[in-house]
Design a protein around this nucleic acid. Structure first.
Length: 588
RNA sequence: GGUCUGGUAGUGUAGCGGUUAGCAUAUCUGCCUGUCACGCAGAAGGUCGCGGGUUCAAAUCCCGUCCGGACCGCCA
């Protein structure tokens, strides 16, 4: 029988019409004179009313939750006092004259009928197909599909070409561990799953495609987090003959389009911008949550002459002014600051025009100035970190985020706060690796990121750490939802970059000789970006974890609790691949 | 690799040295004249994650281990 409509679309205006519906039994309410069967499909719920004299009364009595049924019948306006505004179809009921059980069901492990969710996430992941029956989950799948459709339409209209790139490929230098796939045809050799289509999209520019995009599946074999999956999707795009400015502008338009079309939310035009330096210095993060203020205040100068030894010699001293905190809360924040690289978290409290408690007694000479600069309120707490610049700011940045969660600071601000972070450093010093006294450097973004033209002269000097990259991140509510760069298209600069990160010419040739050849074959200036698609959806749907916006995600340990992956394979499969397992003791 | 946190009927939770291991919900049975997370009555359902220890006595305290989650490292 052909379905005449979705269950949730029925309204009073359909009264008198014959319908055929298919779906799941959400719930059966058993009364002396009739059964109320609540039918559910992805569109919503509607009530079937089966009276005692109905031809389907017997069958209706055998229905249980989650049975799959098909009914035909007539839509009827409910009587006065029987209508409800609790759900959209509450004005009507369907009087079935035929009811077929298409499939029976075991009792679900947890309720999916719209009653409050009680199941643990572990259970939801194990029975993901049940979890996805819940309207909340279906809405997330739908949102994801709508965002993808909006992006596709926008980029197609802008002349972008959707091109797919291989999943079985060669290791690309993104810095994460690769997932490897053994080759049967060439035993002893491996494919790598792409960490991103980086080289391929640049090759498409070299090939003259000019404007490319793809919803690219990417794989990184690193530990998971609530916003990180080993197997994820990015919106990958690349453009030729554009400046950084043009690329950012187009992406802003795209993002605004997505938010207006899908959520009806207006984002600013243009997006605010912060340099990496500003973001770190003011918010202690390169992905600051700008829905609230609470800036880090620099007080390095005030501490230079204090008797507080730990702070007097510090390169950077930063302070956050917050409302009153209990000792226990301060201890918890200190633990967090330490975990984020600080030696400790100093504190003191404002009482009138004095600072008492914590390190207050060392600060008599600076008290007035500290109160003035931070604007700390009466009874409020000052939290301070000191140390090398990056450690001091990022530890206090972590504290800033914790204060947001503690006091709900983000709740009063804009629903979505977006910004570009620009001028990332080109190179990052590798710490604790100073063999032969020389310092070693690595790329911060990836080795094909173009340096700022004004800073190219710093390659090979002692100021390599100051080289700015033409790299940018898109930040939304404290999450990095995108990142990209203007690429190097000049082989000479590429050579300088390789040299800076200690890549010999031979090593570079060995790793991606094909790409260097391509660069030398006529490469247009080009730039690109990749959006963390899952992460964007997580923020858009205000979900607590990335797993909420992925149909079949992996848990904290990278396991699929439903399919039970990863899993062992039989010896024959391994033999065919030329792969042998080593014992635990032989593993590093 | 590290820090923190949790694991008790199908599910969610209470109990934190001596309880017949409590409550809610789901399940099953019966009842109920229109419900809408229907209601009422009853029944069944638990190796308190697992192993060891302390104790007259352990769900409860200790140690180890496995599993879930958050974070650091790692990763854009």
């Amino acid at each position: 029988m052909k379905r005449s409509s979705y269950v949730g679309d029925l309204r009073a205006e359909h009264a008198g019409q014959r319908v055929t519906l298919q779906g799941w039994v959400n719930r059966v309410r058993d009364f002396p004179e009739q059964y109320f069967v609540i039918l559910r499909d992805r569109s919503g719920l509607a009530q079937l009313t089966v009276e005692a004299d109905s031809p389907v009364y017997q069958v209706a009595g055998t229905l249980k939750s989650e049975y799959v049924i098909e009914v035909s019948g007539t839509v009827r306006l409910r009587g006065e006092g029987q209508r409800t505004g609790a759900y959209p179809t509450g004005e009507i009921e369907v009087i079935p004259d035929s009811l077929v059980i298409l499939n029976r069901a075991t009792a679900p492990a947890f309720p999916v009928d719209g009653s409050p969710l009680t199941a643990s996430e572990e259970l939801r992941l194990k029975y993901r197909y049940l979890d996805l029956r819940r309207p909340e989950m279906f809405q997330r799948l739908k949102l994801r599909s709508q965002v993808q459709a909006t992006i596709t339409a926008f980029l197609n209209a802008e002349g972008f070409l959707n091109v797919e790139t291989p999943l079985l490929t060669r290791s690309t230098p993104e810095g994460a561990r690769d997932f490897l796939v053994p080759s049967r045809l060439t035993p002893g050799e491996f494919y790598a799953l792409p960490q991103s289509p980086q080289l391929f999209k640049q090759l498409l520019m070299i090939a003259g495609v000019d404007r490319y995009y793809q919803f690219a599946r990417c794989f990184r074999d690193e530990d998971l987090r609530s916003d990180r999956q080993p197997d994820f999707t990015q919106l990958d795009l690349e453009m030729s003959f554009v400046t950084q400015e043009e690329l950012l502008t187009l992406n802003e338009r795209l993002m605004r389009e997505v938010f207006t079309q899908v959520l009806g939310e207006a984002l600013p035009d243009p997006f605010p911008r912060l340099t990496y330096r500003q973001a770190m210095d003011t918010y202690g993060s390169d992905k600051p949550d700008l829905r609230y203020g609470l800036p880090l205040v620099d007080v390095t100068d005030l501490f230079a002459e204090t008797g507080f030894a730990a702070f007097a010699g510090a390169h950077t001293v930063k302070v956050l002014a917050t409302s009153a905190l209990s000792r226990k809360q301060i201890d918890e924040l200190e633990r967090l600051a330490r975990q984020n690289g600080a030696g400790g978290l100093a504190w003191t409290r404002r009482e009138g025009q004095a600072l008492t408690g914590g390190i207050g007694k060392f600060l008599e000479a600076q008290t007035a100035e500290l109160i003035a600069r931070t604007g700390v309120v009466e009874g409020g707490t000052l939290l301070l970190t000191a140390g090398p610049w990056k450690k001091a700011v990022s530890a206090l940045g972590a504290v800033r985020t914790a204060l947001r969660d503690l006091f709900g600071l983000a709740a009063n601000g804009a629903k979505f706060s977006v910004a570009w972070i620009t001028e990332f450093p080109q190179l990052e010093r590798i710490e604790g690796d100073t063999e032969q006294g020389g310092e070693r450097w690595t790329f911060m973004h990836h080795p094909f990121t173009g340096p700022h033209p004004d800073d190219i002269k710093l390659f090979g000097t002692s100021q390599m750490g100051e080289i700015r990259a033409q790299a940018y991140d898109l930040v939304l509510n404290g999450f990095e939802v995108g990142g990209g760069s203007v690429r190097i298209h000049d082989p000479a600069i590429q050579a300088q970059m390789f040299q800076a990160i200690g890549f010999s010419q031979a090593a570079a040739r060995d790793k991606f000789g094909f790409f260097l050849d391509a660069l030398a074959s006529g490469t247009p200036p080009h730039a690109g970006i990749a959006w963390g698609f899952d992460r964007l959806l997580m923020v858009m749907s205000n979900a607590a974890s990335i797993r909420e916006v992925i149909a079949f995600p992996k848990n904290n340990r990278g396991a699929d609790l439903m399919a039970l992956a990863p899993s062992g394979v039989d010896a024959a499969q391994l033999a065919e691949l030329g792969v042998a397992l080593v014992g635990e003791a032989d593993r590093q």
